[in-house]
């Protein structure tokens, strides 16, 4: 992490002052003062309920009667719950299908729209549209394009002579694919904006140096753009992963979890357990905890990978910038 350098620099820069207060304590207090405004709000309004929800994972609670501690029963119940198995598998499939595609599309889009091109602002705004437009409209358009009997996509396929046209959102084997394509299309504009902002931080001098060295565009992208974008890519990757694990709206809008249970995902099941039928907040919380642990594991792996890669790059960057 970069802070090693900080510490020595800070130590050199700040003369010892303030009656014997330890320098480290002082620095920590300053850091806490930066964090406090956000953290207190976050703690009270988000963290406390989240902790409470985690406690509920070990309880049976219907929202009205006193909660009853039942140990690991909620987790044991998952093992024999066919809906959980289905939801778990579908969530993983969705994450694998969505994450790389979204990141690649968003990055390509951002690089394309960072060029000096005609009507750049127009194209940027337009790319953001599926994300901000009304959910109903976005879903309606998608369902229209992929309507099994009258949609243009299938009409096009039919004109190519394809037989056995896919049923898309209404087909067992194609429903998840349809949801994944929809998610990528709807969300890539969002991540594009983050990449665009990240690209503003890249140093043009490095490109000049690289092209003097005779690097072609592709080499420049790999060796100059990507390393400089590393913190942004890290952020986008973690967000896409988390959001994909938490997918709900996209599924709700396109398939409502169907046909049958073929697109049932974890958050969908969590919602069903908590709000459809007898409220089972305990079981819903246990499911959330599984989701949380899953995401946490993936995030920690990403953090570790990010740190390993970070260290050498930072140095290189620093040298060049100097």
């Amino acid at each position: 992490m970069p802070s090693q350098a900080n510490k020595s620099a800070a130590a050199a820069a700040t003369p010892v002052k303030k009656r014997g207060m330890k320098k480290e304590t002082r620095e920590a207090l300053i850091a806490y003062s930066f964090i406090a405004p956000n953290f207190i709000g976050f703690c009270v309004f988000t963290l406390v309920p989240v902790i409470f929800a985690f406690v509920l994972a070990f309880m049976e609670w219907d929202g009205v009667h006193a909660a009853k501690f039942i140990g690991l029963d909620n987790f044991i119940r998952m093992a024999s719950d066919p809906n959980f198995k289905a939801a778990f598998v579908h969530t993983i499939v969705y994450v694998i299908g969505t994450v790389p595609t979204t990141i690649i599309c968003a990055l390509a889009l951002a690089i394309l729209l960072n060029q000096k091109i005609f009507a750049r602002n127009f194209f940027r705004t337009v790319s953001f549209f599926p994300y901000v437009a009304s959910l109903v409209a976005v879903a309606a358009v998608w369902n229209m394009l992929f309507n099994p009997s009258m949609g243009p996509v299938n009409q096009f396929l039919a004109s190519l002579g394809v037989e056995n046209l896919p049923k898309w959102a209404a087909g067992n084997d194609t429903a998840m694919l349809t949801v994944i394509m929809f998610s990528v299309w709807k969300n890539m504009g969002y991540y594009m904006v983050i990449f665009l902002a990240g690209l503003q931080g890249t140093n043009p001098e490095l490109y000049e140096a690289a092209s003097l060295d005779g690097a072609n565009k592709w080499q420049q992208f790999w060796n100059v753009t990507l390393p400089q974008l590393a913190p942004t890519t890290f952020f986008v990757t973690i967000m896409v992963v988390i959001q994909s694990f938490k997918v709900y709206n996209e599924v709700y809008m396109i398939t409502q979890g169907g046909p049958g249970t073929s697109t049932l995902v974890l958050v969908y099941q969590i919602y069903n357990e908590a709000f459809i039928g007898t409220p089972e907040y305990g079981y819903a919380s246990a499911l959330s905890m599984v989701l949380f642990l899953l995401v946490l594991a993936v995030t920690i792996i990403q953090f570790k990978a990010g740190e390993d890669k970070d260290a050498p790059k930072k140095k290189k960057h620093a040298k060049k910038a100097a």
């Binding site: 209404a170 087909g171 169907g258 049958g260 249970t261 069903n272 459809i276 039928g277 007898t278």
Partner: peptide, 30 residues
């Protein structure tokens, strides 16, 4: 007392039968 939970299962099966993702027999079995 379980009508809401029953409804969820019935809806899933109905969806599957009507989209012809499964046969009527399979749907009823479900």
């Amino acid at each position: 007392e379980k009508s809401a939970d029953i409804e969820v299962v019935l809806n899933q099966a109905h969806d599957n039968i009507m989209t012809e993702n499964c046969t009527i027999e399979e749907g009823i079995e479900y």
